[in-house]
Design a protein around this nucleic acid. Structure first.
Length: 241
DNA sequence: TAGGCCATCTGGTCCT
DNA sequence: AGGACCAGATGGCCTA
């Protein structure tokens, strides 16, 4: 990815999604699910179901790929890959001539058949690479909090990336606020800041998140201003009103 | 039907 | 030399 902010075709959807990005999006910390659902509106593949969305079309019989059904196998692509059989070499050469022009010969010393098998293996590698990329995107979709449901469309690739970016920013902001809150509480209780803040200095220490989801009592202290969630570390949080 | 999204093929470039 | 990565081209499917 050479451009962090892709542009070009698909711009309409991008503009829509960009309206959710940055600070404006971060402001939606409580409405993340709704925002995600909005982003999911840019997604694709509702009618295909979770399995079909994989949609990796196999180029055709005889290839080195597993013989999974190819819901969207591009006819022309399969033909151009020469894996359909018959006049495969002719088709392959015609394709090359079309692309390279009359005099074009990038690999002139290779015999056509050898050349073609090399091309097929390169194609297969590229397919595998793209499948791995899609698997990684699926993994990312799985951990992004948006409406995962059969009735909700799968997030598009670009929507997945942008939503993930915003989610990370949102988490970082929440962590920052939590650090400030802990520092504030430590001041109020006369604790040595380095001791109490130590568990939070490591970015990955989400397990020490000091709020308990169970308690719902409003805190008379200022920690209630943070997300409205009572803090287990705050002595006021569990006080009876 | 146009536009969005996608998978695939392909050639070029860089790296090991 | 071979593999990984990238971007352009192409064509199919879906939705508004």
């Amino acid at each position: 990815l050479r451009s962090a902010e892709p542009s070009g075709p698909g711009g309409a959807g991008m503009a829509e999604l960009k309206s959710l990005s940055g600070d404006a999006y971060l402001a939606l910390s409580h409405g993340y699910a709704a925002a995600a659902a909005a982003a999911a509106g840019l997604a694709y593949g509702a009618a295909r179901g979770p399995e079909a969305t994989r949609g990796y079309g196999t180029p055709g019989p005889g290839g080195e790929l597993p013989a999974t059904p190819a819901p969207r196998a591009p006819a022309a692509a399969a033909e151009s890959s020469g894996e359909q059989s018959g006049d495969e070499d002719d088709a392959f050469e015609q394709q090359r001539r079309r692309r390279r022009g009359p005099g074009g010969a990038a690999d002139g010393r290779r015999r056509p058949r050898e050349q073609r098998s090399l091309r097929l293996s390169i194609n297969a590698r590229e397919r595998r690479r793209m499948h791995d990329l899609n698997d990684a995107l699926d993994g990312l979709r799985a951990v992004i909090p948006y409406a995962h449901s059969p009735s909700v469309r799968k997030l598009s690739k670009i929507a997945t990336l942008l939503l993930a970016k915003n989610y990370i920013l949102m988490q970082a902001q929440a962590l920052d606020e939590m650090r400030r809150l802990v520092a504030y509480l430590n001041q109020g209780q006369g604790l040595a800041a380095p001791v109490a803040a130590a568990p939070l200095t490591h970015f990955g220490q989400a397990a020490v998140f000091p709020f308990s989801a169970g308690a719902a009592l409003p805190c008379p202290d200022k920690c209630a201003a943070f997300s409205g969630t009572p803090s287990a570390l705050c002595k006021h949080c569990n006080e009876k009103p």
